[in-house]
Design a protein around this nucleic acid. Sequence first.
DNA 1: AGTTGGATGGTCT
DNA 2: GACCATCCAACTG
Length: 237
Amino acid sequence: VTVDRSILGLPTLEFGRALLGARLVREAGPDESERRVARIVEVEAYDGPDDRASHARFGRTARNAVMFGPPGRAYVYLVYGMHDCLNVVTGPDGTASAVLIRSVEPLEGIDAMRRARARRAAGRRRGYALLPSEDARRVVETAALARLSGVPDALLASGPGLVAAVFDLDRSWTGQDLFDEASPVRIEPRAAGEKPPRVVASPRVGVDYAGPPATELPWRLSVADHPSVSRPRPAGG
DNA sequence: AGTTGGATGGTCT
DNA sequence: GACCATCCAACTG
């Protein structure tokens, strides 16, 4: 048994809390040699249609439809035209809520994560898609990988866009059941014997557009004093 | 160590 | 047509 579906029944905030310390896993695929595993250390809750910061605030749309479905599925969206962000749908079927995975601590397959992040960075460069050969693209990717060598493992996936980058996730993963043992991408409980982490709650990041009270709700949950938590660092943790 | 602005395209009024 | 659940390089001090 690798997944724990029992947490799917929890209210969104408790579900988010239960996610801290849990593992995000991607199995090795035909093109990826390494299995990747990371510890979830920071999440944000987006709870219901009355949450003015939530993508569900305009009701059901083509983009957010999966948020209205059963819990445990992936909702991956594109922000700022370039970054993908991974959410886990929460709450019973028919309600619209989700938890954004904001940062993780790499545990296994760290080289594959570095390569994936370098690939993403290289792909952003002008003209990359027009490069004449696979070799030419590889040169750009290798340069990006070299630049990443100064980044410590703990900071490789310290931010929501980076989480999706190191796990090679994009919008096409929306709808995938993350609590199915057969899924190549899934969420597994923390290791046996590992204590539940101490949790700090603080306001969510990047939601000024929502105004109060949404901007003030302490719905960003992070592991206290963990180096992989993204900026801005929560106060007092 | 902290601040600023540019990149980029989908989504919604 | 405005805005965005972000990241990074290129500055300042």
